[in-house]
């Protein structure tokens, strides 16, 4: 899963898609994931960091990860 190269993200959670003109805002954990994706961190490593950092089960992370990917795909932010 790779973020499109030209997507602009900021630490405050704003995302701008120059190809469509759409803007998005992410919650802190969403913004964190996006920054890591942008830096090329592998999804499995990102998930592991979340599990270490937050009070959450692996199943829930997995389920929410899939839903977040669906949101990113829906928003046209991912490389196909």
């Amino acid at each position: 899963m790779r973020l499109k190269k030209n997507i602009a993200t900021s630490e405050s959670g704003f995302i701008f898609h120059p190809g469509t003109g759409d803007s998005f805002s992410a919650n802190p954990i969403g913004a964190d994931i996006l920054l890591q994706l942008k830096e090329g961190v592998a999804p499995s490593d990102i998930k592991k960091t979340i599990l270490d950092k937050y009070d959450v089960t692996a199943n829930m992370v997995e389920k929410d990860w899939d839903d977040f990917s669906a949101q990113l795909r829906e928003a046209n932010l991912l490389e196909l």
Partner: peptide
């Protein structure tokens, strides 16, 4: 080390009115 409370990741599209 106590872990942080978890919230599922989310993005929201910014529209003219819906985002208020």
């Amino acid at each position: 080390m106590t872990k942080l409370p978890y919230e599922r990741p989310q993005i929201l599209k910014m529209n003219a009115g819906l985002m208020n």
